[in-house]
Design a protein around this nucleic acid. Structure first.
Lengths: 120, 120
DNA sequence: CTAGTTGTTCGCCTCGCATCGAACAGTCTA
DNA sequence: TAGACTGTTCGATGCGAGGCGAACAACTAG
């Protein structure tokens, strides 16, 4: 209570806490990938080089608060790694590690698009 | 209003409505498999022969109402097929069809158990 | 220093999901 | 026919996930 009621949030330049895919339960990985926004993030990230995309550079229909949340979920699922670069935070898809823990899952997610993709 | 307020639910012996894996979005499949109860159902089912397991024969910690719901979810995700056999309803895992639609996913789910399974 | 950019955290709200008990509809067995 | 058994549906409940705006912190650019 040093400052009335104004909560003092932890400094956000704490290095992002990462979870290695090795320590991720299958349910967590599947849940992380079952959200359309996160799926879009992963796919866009997969189409870019490592450490090339900042968090704000993705084309998803949510505001930055929600976006930040989704990145945290992806981190907790061992899907991405983040690094601070100046004021920005850059991302990398953990292809190899995730593939080792969940063989084929990432590939499935990246190549699958929509059901019934062919003509009717 | 024939019987006061007692609603008359639709007869439940309507043959179960199935969804072919072909028509299932990836998100739906992943979401279906990201629940621990449903994961247990799928695994137990995979360890049995087709049409051998009734709905009530699974070892999961939920009551029958929730159980019925989970089976409906699995059906909607193209993961199982159900058939009426007398008073019981028997189940079958749609191995081949699901594998064709989501290659490797079922295998992943069936072989993966818990994270950090090895010694530290 | 001042102003703009980037991303996290907080508080709040709104849904959707999982769960349960109760009621019901079939089926099977005495 | 009565009763036991199986599974679905309804209605209510609790809880967590996802969304937003606002405030904040760190960095960059002038």
């Amino acid at each position: 209570m040093t400052k009335g009621n104004v909560a003092a949030p932890a400094p956000h330049r704490t290095p992002p806490e990462h979870v290695h895919p090795r320590d991720v339960p299958l349910e967590t990985a599947l849940a992380a990938l079952s959200d359309p926004v996160r799926l879009a993030l992963v796919r866009e990230l997969a189409a870019s080089d490592d450490w090339e995309r900042t968090c704000g550079s993705f084309d998803v229909p949510v505001r930055k608060a929600a976006l930040s949340h989704h990145f945290a979920v992806l981190r907790s699922a061992g899907l991405i790694e983040q690094r601070d670069a100046g004021a920005k935070r850059i991302n990398r898809l953990r292809r190899a590690e995730f593939e080792e823990r969940f063989p084929g899952l990432l590939a499935l997610v990246l190549q699958q698009q929509a059901p019934g993709g062919g003509p009717e």
